[in-house]
């Protein structure tokens, strides 16, 4: 339709307008009569003389395509797809298994870590107790030694003090006797001792 009208437009300068309508009616006629007019201006689709040829070759083509597809191509593609699904499912299962294993290993690792920590704590505590015990023993021993030494020193100090006291009264008596003698008196040793002892006591 479109080409008829545009044909008419472009040919307006040259061809008569009636020409176009004539051609249009002629086209309508040929379309009607296309059934028996092979190679005419009608639709080639309606040219019955080529039908047998087309149908024959179509059937040949369809049979060939069907055989090629159903015997070779489709089973092959089907098996490839099935294979792939199998492989993927298997891989997923394997991955799942590996994941479970990894989780188990992690758990074992964590357990080992906890065990090791506990063991370490236990060892630390044991060692601490041992050291404490040793320390206690050593402290006790040192205390005992110190006490012994202190007692000994005390005895000696007392001795020295006693000795000093004795020496002091002796010296005092002697000195007192000497002083009395130097002053020209004669001293009664017993009185001096008496007096010095009195004095020292005081």
């Amino acid at each position: 339709m479109a080409n008829e009208t545009t044909g008419a437009v472009t040919s307006a300068t040259e061809a008569a307008a009636g020409h176009a309508t004539e051609a249009a009616t002629a086209a309508g006629h040929t379309a009607e009569a296309a059934g028996h007019a092979a190679g005419s201006a009608g639709m080639p689709q309606l040219d019955v003389s080529t039908f047998g040829n087309q149908i024959f070759w179509l059937l040949v083509a369809l049979v060939l395509i069907y055989l090629i597809l159903s015997k070779i191509a489709l089973p092959r593609i089907g098996s490839v797809l099935a294979n792939r699904h199998g492989t993927i499912a298997k891989d997923i299962a394997a991955a799942e298994e590996l994941k479970a294993k990894a989780q188990e290993a992690e758990k074992a690792y964590n357990q080992a870590l906890v065990d090791a920590r506990n063991e370490a704590n236990r060892i630390i505590a044991a060692t601490k107790a041992e050291i404490q015990a040793e320390l206690n023993v050593a402290t006790a021993k040192a205390d005992a030694e110190i006490a012994a030494k202190a007692a000994e020193s005390e005895v000696r100090i007392n001795e020295i003090r006693a000795g000093a006291m004795a020496a002091v009264s002796q010296v005092a008596q002697d000195t007192a006797g000497e002083i009395v003698g130097a002053l020209g008196g004669t001293a009664d040793p017993a009185a001096i001792v008496q007096a010095v002892t009195e004095r020292l006591k005081g």
Binding site: G7, A15, A20, A23, P44, T50
Partner: peptide
């Protein structure tokens, strides 16, 4: 319609492509 276009120089053969030869 085909002949009409041809006389102008524009070739209208929209259905020729469907011809079985």
């Amino acid at each position: 319609m085909a002949t009409e276009g041809q006389s102008e120089g524009l070739a209208f053969h929209p259905l020729d492509q469907f011809q079985v030869k």
